[in-house]
């Protein structure tokens, strides 16, 4: 790999758009391929480019064209999954770094300045807005998990409504079974069907008898990963 090619790969990863590098296993020649262009010293035919782009969409790295010169290795770089946490509460202080460690891009939404004040969330990105506006900025997609932690319907409900209107792969809400039943009633009043609200994991988190904020964060993280990997299969 040439040093300028490595720089290109590292720069492109920051742009959060999927792409692939293709390496000729024998010669080491390489090209970077995205939706529109290919850069590098490895020439690829139109059918090869199509196959590489199919692999980018499917997020499937691997060796192709093994019959020619030992094959071409396609390494797909997909942007990280995201986790949107609503409520910069105590559990968020544990969940945000755990999710970050697990490779997620984490953003916390909370309109309450004092909860987001410097130091409470370390270097996690925070959006100090009401969840309606915050969720618009975040625009959850099929690689996004949304977890509400505030217990406050004024904050949780609009975030859950926005999540339900998105393709978010995971939606979870903290709160007891009783408050969750009340939450489902309110969402039903907003026009969401039972099938819609069935997407919400509530109470969020795997049942591991978690007690402390950090333990609850672990149980939430485990459930999010379970959903992410189930989607991938």
């Amino acid at each position: 790999m040439r040093q300028d090619f490595l720089r290109l790969v590292v720069d492109r990863r920051h742009q959060k758009q999927p792409f692939a590098t293709v390496t000729d296993i024998q010669s080491g020649r390489q090209s970077l391929v995205d939706e529109t262009v290919a850069h590098g010293d490895l020439s690829l035919t139109a059918p090869q480019l199509n196959e590489v782009r199919r692999r980018v969409s499917a997020n499937r790295s691997g060796v192709m064209d093994t019959e020619v010169n030992g094959g071409l290795f396609v390494r797909v770089y997909s942007p990280p999954a995201r986790m949107v946490i609503v409520g910069a509460v105590h559990i968020a202080q544990a969940l945000a770094p755990i999710a970050s460690l697990a490779g997620f891009d984490v953003v916390v939404i909370d309109p309450r300045e004092a909860f987001v004040r410097a130091g409470r969330l370390a270097d996690i990105q925070a959006i100090v807005e009401w969840p309606d506006d915050g969720m618009k900025q975040v625009a959850p997609d099929a690689r996004t998990a949304v977890v509400t932690l505030t217990h406050d319907p004024k904050l949780d409900d609009p975030a859950l409504a926005a999540a339900l209107r998105s393709k978010a792969f995971f939606i979870g809400a903290l709160g007891s079974r009783k408050t969750h039943a009340q939450r489902l009633e309110r969402l039903s009043g907003m026009g969401f069907s039972a099938a819609d609200t069935a997407r919400i994991h509530g109470p969020v988190g795997l049942d591991i008898n978690a007690a402390t904020p950090a333990e609850i964060a672990v149980s939430i993280m485990a459930q999010v990963i379970e959903s992410l990997r189930a989607e991938a299969e």
């Binding site: 590292v10 390494r75 460690l101 997620f104």
Partner: peptide, 30 residues
Amino acid sequence: MTGAVPDPLNQLSRWLADGKKAALATVIAT
């Protein structure tokens, strides 16, 4: 942001920026 687990490609870039020699190993099939 990136997690606290160091990223090998970023580490590789830093080594090269410091003028060091390095290689990249990648799992290509399992």
